[in-house]
Design a protein around this nucleic acid. Sequence first.
DNA 1: TGATATTCGGGTAATTCGGGTA
DNA 2: CGTGTCCGAATTACCCGAATAT
Lengths: 74, 74
Amino acid sequence: MTTMRPAPRPAGAERLLTPGEVAGLFRVDPKTVTRWATAGRIGSIRTPGGHRRFRESEVNALLAELTTPGPALG
Amino acid sequence: MTTMRPAPRPAGAERLLTPGEVAGLFRVDPKTVTRWATAGRIGSIRTPGGHRRFRESEVNALLAELTTPGPALG
DNA sequence: TGATATTCGGGTAATTCGGGTA
DNA sequence: CGTGTCCGAATTACCCGAATAT
């Protein structure tokens, strides 16, 4: 079995996430992530076939930005 | 995809629950869960669309913290 | 080349949001 | 003070067949 590692990227290249992966992070339907892209709420990159990919750094930044910390447990 | 690549798990990524799911755990109206979040009693993550998601671990911790043990069963 | 999972599109239910109120 | 409910508006979830990705 050939292990399918993600192809090594040139320095500076951004790691891309699929709609399903982004959906998993937000606990949302993949189609919802698509709507975010259509609405311009999140940047997206299109494959030649028309499928969307999302920048991991942007997704993580968005997550952090929309996260409200809970109370200090005690 | 013959072999599903494991979804990248950025540090801090957790299982998230919807307001309705949290409400079900506490036997409370979903709106009440929303109020907890607004009052800062529980942390929350907002989708770009404004809907809230809650960390499963935090919810469970809250459940355990607010639980008073009953008499030991013989 | 084929096999399988995912993501297109669109449409239509189901949740959730926010404010106000009891 | 905390919770449940009513309302309209917005967002999200599930349905399908067809195309794309690996």
